[in-house]
Simulated scan of single mutants.
Amino acid sequence: MPRPPLPVGTWGKIRTEKLGPNRHVARARFRDYDGKTRDVEAIGPTGPAATRVLQVKLRDRIAPNDDEITRETKVNTLADLWIDDLIAEERVSPQTIDRYTTSLRTVIRPAAGNLRVREATVGRLDKVLREVAKDRPSAAKGAKVVLGLMFALAVRRGALTTNPVRETGRLRKPRRTVRALEPEQLEKVRAAIQRWQQPTPGKSGPRHSGDLADIVDLLFATGARIGEILALRWEDVDLAAEQPTLTICGTIVYVKGKGFFRQGWTKTDAGYRNVVLPRFAVGMLMARKITAVDNPHDAIFASRRGTWLSPQNVRRQWRQARTDTGLEWVTPHTARKTVASLIDKEADAKDAAGQLGHDDEAITKKHYIVKPALAPDSSHILEKLGPGQPPSDPGQPQTA
């Protein structure tokens, strides 16, 4: 009966031979990753030393192939090849490519870029991710996604048999409390913006426009994302309908080398939606329409040069307006949480999810709705712990 072949990636008995003074050779048959069995040898001053060298050589054996990714490829090179593949496939959006590139530049390259693929073990990668997660949990989560995709490419190209990122530990998730604005806090927000928009005597430069106040009103009128609000065009609004509506069908994105531009689709499929506008938003848009200056994009909110406003600039303006107001925790995204919490309170979470453009109301409940856990009504039982209560009758059965 013929001897069964060695399993792929394993070797047979190691044999040693003395070649001369302080010169020994260790040999073994190794079944390579292409299925062929080959002789592998290593030299050492003694038999045991040659054996140890051979064992390391066998452990780190590279699958013979013509691919540009091997076990000896550096992680930096793997990253470059992976990004090139993504761009060539054209299935990932440019802004996602930018996000991946940022994760590579800020986390992965500094921490692991000079490692060989074979050296990027589960333990090393796990340590890198946990160190980052101590101060930047979101960055660590993004880096884990990128590393997983990179090493999946290494597996597909035959450099590795398993993806080490899959075996790294779960990263801690910071506890986040959903926080929404109360009515009096919202009025404080509007008052801060009004003060900021007033001209400052003796201050040079262009006067602040009324854009920030109108943008904030529309955020609270719709629950939309800041990028979705800034991507609105006049053609997306129907103010003449019996129930005036607004169609959210795009967002403002940034791509390196191209700048800010309007993307003609929303973050998710569920994000494409018609929103019925409350009266205060209808009044604001009508007043704005009367004084609107034409721009090439038909944008409701355009810069003085007629270009799209960037979300970053709007956030910067809000940071300036909220200075010394105690509203440092309030961001444009707080509007989405405020809208979701109010709709959930007055209607339900399903309506809140639809308003925000979520296809899963569990996301809305977890991240956008302020709702403390409701304990069961046990007040009639706890009343027995009040002062002056008569002692219980030992002969009576105790209630649970």
Rank of each mutant, 00 (worst) to 15 (best):
I381F: 13
A26K: 03
T106W: 15
R61L: 14
V253L: 01
P244C: 06
Q263E: 15
R166E: 01
K267E: 09
R38N: 04
G395K: 14
Q263F: 08
V75L: 05
G20L: 04
G257Q: 02
T247F: 11
I290M: 06
I43C: 00
G210E: 08
L115A: 09
Q95M: 06
L181Y: 07
L309I: 11
L54P: 05
P110K: 12
A231K: 13
K144A: 08
L374T: 12
G44D: 10
P5M: 07
R136A: 08
L309T: 07
T331I: 11
Y33V: 07
L78K: 04
N295I: 08
A240F: 10
R233K: 12
Q396T: 15
A302F: 10
H367P: 06
S209Y: 01
W234P: 15
S204G: 15
D217W: 02
A112H: 05
I193S: 08
V8N: 05
A281I: 14
E228H: 09
A292Q: 06
I248F: 05
R71P: 01
L6R: 12
A63V: 04
D214A: 13
F261W: 08
G326K: 01
L285W: 09
C249G: 12
Q398V: 09
G148H: 01
T106H: 11
K384F: 03
G326S: 08
G148S: 13
E68G: 07
E184V: 15
D39R: 10
V330L: 06
T77P: 00
V56T: 13
R124F: 09
V53R: 13
T268A: 06
R225A: 05
I226V: 14
W308F: 06
D67T: 07
E17S: 02
A26P: 08
L86A: 01
V75C: 03
R29D: 06
V370D: 13
K74A: 09
W318S: 00
A120I: 11
D217P: 06
N274H: 07
F260C: 01
A352S: 11
A28N: 11
R91F: 03
R31V: 09
D39N: 04
V128D: 06
R124C: 14
V189F: 05
S138I: 05
R304A: 15
G264K: 14
L125H: 13
K267S: 12
G142S: 10
G259Y: 06
T73I: 11
Y368C: 00
W329L: 02
V53P: 00
